[in-house]
Amino acid sequence: MAARAAAVRLLHEVLTLGRSLDEVFARQVQALAPPDRALAHALAAQALRWLVDLDRLIDSASARPLPADARARQVLRIALAGRLRLKTPMHATIATALALLQGGPRRLCHAVLARLDREGATLPELPTLPVAWAERWESRFKPSALEAMRAALGTIPPTDLSLRNPDETTSWATRLAGQSIEPGHVQIAGSQRVEALPGLAEGAFWVQDLAARQVVRRLGDVGGRPVLDLCAAPGGKTLQLAAAGAHVTAVDRAAYRMARLEAHLARTGLSARTVVADLLEWEPDQLFGFILLDAPCSATGTFRRHPEVLARRHPRELPGLAERQRQMLARSANWLAPGGRLVYAVCSLEPEEGEEVVERTAGQGLALLATERLLPGTGPGDGFFIATFAKAGA
């Protein structure tokens, strides 16, 4: 019961208050035992992955539509996620759902669940993408790519780890019962309680999506060189750069996120200079031969790990995000030394935040070397747009 109550609260914070699941999870489950924490997360995550299809079932069995933010709808989402995805017995599904609606529309909830069970309701083979995003992507991506994206939404992704010492890749892959796709990387099947993994406390690795690793690699050999890492927190790319021997200056405007980065540096024994500042107001005291700008964005490419992003975000936000990204890229270009390299990246699938930002930055003294788009389901991990620029030598 406690786990399901926590899962309902998680859905409320994510879908009604617009917060990320990672942001609210620890606070909502801190009083629960580890098994109940895991169940609460599993229920909420499955409800978010299959949100469109669960709502379709709820609406098909309701005499009148429930408001999107109604507690009864949240309870039904969690109940059906447990029943249809985690195979909770029907009697337990109904009993726990009704207990979560003390003083609420219990008869309605019971009727919806009983009807769906009586009619043998099922979910589709792959989850349905939200209309606002599906309509955009259908015009841009091949049907096979869209199917792969739906499969990625419905599948719990593996856990990717980056190693402090790439020479230990084979030994850590063996110790963690994982596989390595490239030196310095280990992938473990399914979601993991990372804090319980051997090696974490002594700083042998950190969690970092495999696609995010590719962003850093586009800078080339940074060993012994000054690198400016902008919008750096929570720090996976900063750690990757530091582990490669770069002298990193990491800048982020969020103090609480920078605190997390500093904690990761302390745990791994890696070093970087950290600066809490808004890069649109900050000014460095030197030029850099390498700059990485992983700009804040809609994050639509991260839905395999953060399924709530497709519900929290809407295409109407894109113009504002794109304008800020353009400003960041233009300002960053001023800090690149002659002959230097700048990588601009967003974990977004939207051209407004990728190709169009690059086009609008023409004339900033940068030569575009390459662009690439990584898609969730067919690429190495999350979806990314990556652009690599160079500045002419003196």
Rank of each mutant, 00 (worst) to 15 (best):
D229I: 01
P157H: 13
L57D: 06
L98H: 11
A31T: 14
E281C: 08
V358N: 04
N334M: 10
G383F: 08
V343I: 05
E119G: 09
T371W: 06
D252N: 11
V346D: 09
P284W: 13
D117Y: 15
S144K: 03
H41T: 00
E356H: 14
A272C: 08
A367Y: 08
R37Y: 04
P296T: 03
R175V: 04
V112E: 02
A152H: 13
E317Q: 14
A38D: 07
L101M: 07
R9V: 12
D294E: 01
A212I: 12
L126P: 02
P226C: 05
A173N: 07
A99G: 15
M328Q: 12
A81P: 02
G365H: 02
L329N: 05
R217P: 00
A333H: 04
C347H: 02
I291P: 00
R225S: 01
K237M: 07
Q286Y: 14
V358Q: 09
A111L: 06
A259C: 08
E168W: 08
A44V: 04
F385Y: 15
L210W: 14
P338W: 13
E281V: 06
S139E: 15
L11M: 05
L146R: 15
Q240V: 01
A99V: 06
P34N: 02
H306N: 13
L279H: 01
R217F: 05
R373A: 04
I188Y: 02
E195N: 04
T274N: 03
L200H: 06
